[in-house]
Nucleic acid binder design. Sequence first.
DNA 1: CAGTGGCCCTGAGCGC
DNA 2: TGCGCTCAGGGCCACT
Length: 275
Amino acid sequence: MPELPEVEITRQGFADALQGARLLDLRLGKPLRWPLGVSAKALQGARLGLACRRGKYIWLPLDRPEPLGGLLLHLGMSGSLAFTPEPQVLGPHQHLAIDTSQGCLTLTDPRRFGAAVWSPALDASPARELLARLGAEPFDPALDARTLHAGLKGRRVPIKQALLAGDVVVGAGNIYACEALWQAGIHPATPAARVGPARAERLLGAVRAVLSDALAAGGSTLRDFSSSLGAIGRYQSLVAVYGREGEPCPRCRTAVKRIVQGQRSTFFCPTCQRR
DNA sequence: CAGTGGCCCTGAGCGC
DNA sequence: TGCGCTCAGGGCCACT
C-alpha cells in the first residue's frame, strides 16, 4: 500500500497532535514482522516527540524526560495508521495501539508485513541496521543528477528494480517507480548503468514531480489507503500507466504494456519509453 | 559481491 | 455458493 507520499501523509496526520503527549499504554495484537523489542510497561509514562520520516519508515521519538529511544514504524504492503481521540478496541487486523494523553494511534495491517520496533536511538541497533541501506531522500537538496547517475553506474539490474530497491533514492515504490519512468521516457527494462547523466537528470526530476504531485493529491488510494485522519488519496486518478494495461498512453495513445520484473508488475508505454 | 528468487501473511477478485 | 488460483502499494535474507 504505502509508498513515500502515503507514509508522509500518514505522518502529517498525527505528528503535531501527538507531539508532547504522554504514553499511557501500548497494546499489541498479532506479531508483526519483528518483535517490538521492549515491554509496554517500560514505555508507559514516556513523552512523545515529533514523528519524522526516513524513507517509508516513521520514527516516533520517546523521552521520559531523558531520551528513551523511540518506535520505528513501517506500514509494509497493507498497513495504515489511524489517529483517533479515544482508544480503540483492537480489531482482528489491528496489531498495535499507542494510547496517549492526546489520542490513540492504531496500526491496522492485514498482511502483517509491517513493523513496529523499539530502538534506543535512530543511530543505534536495531534502527541503524534497518535504515542502513536506504538511499537519499528524494527531496534532499544535496541529491543531484550526478549523485543519482553515480549510484546507477555499473549496475546491470533494470532501472525499475534499481528504483524499487531504494538504495540510491528512497520513496518510489511500484506505482511511483512506474510513473516516474513513464514521465522520464525511460524503458523499465533499461539496465541501470545505461541511464546516463542526461537521463539521470530527467529521472530525478520525474521522481520528484511524481512524488510531489502524489503528496499534493493526498496519496493514492488503490484499495483502502487513507491518511491517519481517514482522508482518501486522489492520485490514482492521475496515474498515467500504473494498473492501466491495455489503456492508451496519455501521451501517444499506444496501449500500455504490463511486464513482470522481480515478481512485481511493471506498466509502461512501449512507444514513449526507450531503452 | 551483485543479482535473483523465496518468503513473511491475508484478502479480493475471477474463472470454472 | 464454493473452490482454487493469481495478484496485491514492501523489503529482508539465503543462495548463486
